[in-house]
Design a protein around this nucleic acid. Structure first.
Lengths: 376, 376
DNA sequence: CGAGGGACTGCAAAGGTTTGCAGCAGAAGT
DNA sequence: ACTTCTGCTGCAAACCTTTGCAGTCCCTCG
């Protein structure tokens, strides 16, 4: 039913190869002929069949995007940016949701491999070694994870977590808690590492709770445990958990930020809308989506050259497997306030280097629940 | 590099057609042979090339999903459900974001047409006639819009709007406002029509403001105008606008629900998290996504027979272009309170069973809106 | 005037798979 | 023993493009 290249050739009285060239290499065909072909194509409503083209060129002009959970508001801006960027380069996006399940992740890479020129692996939960293995099957760009030898774009959550902890200790909090993210999350590991170090440097205690599902419920359910730690300030793996936690704390009668401060990570749109408004670490998700697409396409050799933000990593031999790190920043809103350790000292936050009761910031001791994440 | 059907054939000592049949029609090949082929395929990591298959079968096993704005929290649950449902049927999803732009919508349908077996058009902004025209190019299922002759799944927002208005007038509000949605939105028209009728029936005034962008800012920016109408209760096109509106009202010194009541539509996850929690009309978005996929696939003839929710319409000749209507329901939370017209009647908000304004709890009557499913 | 070259265009193979048809062996029926 | 199935497998065309190669025509240069 749909017009093929042959119909156009017949209608315009040329060979199919001329039609083909009219579209894929216009400069090779006589302007007059070209116009005739174009006219026929137009009137027949002809559009090249990308599947057939893919068969012979080997390039599908499609990109796969594998996401842990589309419904998590962290991702849509990233998806949107990636889709837009891809389309600008005449690529289309396959999307797939893994429900945070590593096995599904693997299946999806396989399933998509033959249909796309590359896959964007977004916040993967599977092991690094598996990722490396899969990357031999199809070009991969990893988002929110570093795996050696593979192009990646990560947000500098380590720095973000440090800023958050410093913000908190600066406000006088000495007993902190961290709500970790899901098992297998590189980001969660980063946050934990950096937060622990920052807390130690400020001589504050940090109790790590988790792993937890990175959802509102994941935060809500931990309210009781958070209270039990006696922490006066909490950093969470993401905003969703922070918001859930605030709910939970609220129903426990604890007021934010009066009784306890809460800091999230991501700065999703929602965090501006809660009461109190959430103090959080802003991550450039849209930029990450764009950058990842560009990295994939440039590696792919097909796309334009310019990459954009972030200085690229070390230039290998040929395969310049860049790892881009995007900066984060602390956005202070209303969910954080002065801690109990600095009662009437002054109005402002600071109250820094107090010797304090020399608490052990030992994470091993803190992790009552279970160790957060095991290195893979 | 990747193994082809020919490699497998060679490795297992059979003809490629046998390999093909092993995968697409296993019952036609001797179990012994089949196992041998399967083994070779496994060890070679062979996966059928879907592009090549599509070329000959004409079925890509892909579905296009065109969305007005991925970042609008209304859509992700729908996307997620659609993707999951599709994958279960061995289909993959192309996603595309139109940025609420009708022209982009059309382009995307064209661009996707050759790559998919059908397109889900989600909350389209273009004209009905254009949609009909496009439907001749590729099978279409429309979501959140009714266009004659095309399969569609819509949420019964008309009924939802009526319930919302009745809720408001039941609380004693007599001066109402409606924040309409974007131009071209079928849903917005439906809401307006139904809300107007309901207000008239309750002898209340309803001021319609709009069209507006369906975003938080769209609501926020209208706060001043809403106040100027003197309305004591507002229904908005969606939750996002309601939330923005509450922000705006707040900064105007108006308190929700004491000074003014607000009702949203959609019941996005966010609406449970605002303060006050938002009263809203819940729309079954996930079900809509699943249903739409099923309708497309069943029409497509490829998918399994069972359709799921909503009994299908009368079987026309062949093309049973069903239009499924999904029920909505009012979720009363904290953003609505008694109106000025019913000052000290009682303390509680709802003023429920009260014979009052003649509320029909009759479900049969409630469904009077439209029968669940209409066959066209 | 002849050779060389440039600008187009046509030819045909190739890419990986599906599928109608034909072939083959062995079993069952008469 | 001869036919008729049945169950399985091979053959080759077809799907729609792209692309290296070769051919044609005409123009330019020597």
């Amino acid at each position: 039913m749909p017009a093929t290249i042959r119909d156009v050739a017949r209608a315009s009285g040329v060979h199919i190869s001329t039609v083909s060239r009219t579209f894929s290499a216009p400069h090779l065909v006589n302007p007059e002929t070209r116009n005739r072909v174009l006219a026929s194509a137009e009137s027949l409503g002809y559009r090249p069949n990308r599947a057939a083209r893919a068969l012979i060129t080997g390039r599908t002009h499609n990109i796969g995007l594998i996401i842990a959970d589309i419904a998590n508001p962290f991702f849509p801006p990233l998806i949107k940016a990636a889709e837009s960027q891809a389309r600008q380069r005449d690529y289309h996006i396959f999307i797939a949701d893994t429900n945070e399940d590593p096995a599904t992740e693997e299946d999806l890479v396989h399933a998509l491999a033959k249909q796309v020129d590359g896959v964007l692996l977004c916040s993967p939960r599977m092991s690094n070694s598996l990722i490396e293995q899969l990357s031999r099957e199809v070009p991969l760009v990893v988002i929110n994870r570093q795996v050696t030898g593979l192009p990646a774009v990560v947000m500098d959550v380590g720095q973000g977590a440090r800023l958050a902890i410093e913000h908190l200790t600066g406000l006088g909090h000495r007993d902190l808690a961290l709500l970790a993210g899901p098992r297998g999350s590189w980001t969660s590991r980063e946050i934990r590492r950096s937060a622990t170090a920052a807390a130690r440097a400020a001589e504050a205690t940090l109790t790590v709770l988790g792993p937890n599902p990175p959802t509102e419920d994941g935060g809500l359910g931990m309210a009781e445990q958070v209270r039990r730690t006696g922490a006066t300030a909490v950093l969470t793996y993401n905003d969703l958990m922070a918001i859930g936690l605030m709910e939970g704390l609220d129903s426990l009668g604890l007021r934010v930020p009066l009784d306890i401060s809460v800091v999230g990570i991501d700065d999703i749109a929602l965090s501006r809308l809660t009461r109190p408004k959430l103090t959080t670490v802003a991550t450039p998700t849209a930029a990450a989506g764009r950058t990842a697409v560009d990295m994939l396409l440039q590696h792919d050799g097909a796309a334009s050259a310019r990459t954009g933000r972030g200085r690229s990593g070390s230039t290998d031999d040929r395969r310049t497997t860049a790892q881009v790190t995007l900066q984060t920043e602390l956005v202070i809103r209303d969910s954080t306030g002065v801690g109990p350790a600095a009662p009437l000292r002054r109005s402002g936050p600071a109250a820094p280097a107090e010797p304090g009761p020399h608490s052990h910031p030992d994470p091993g001791h803190a992790a009552a629940a279970t160790p957060d994440v095991v290195a893979s």
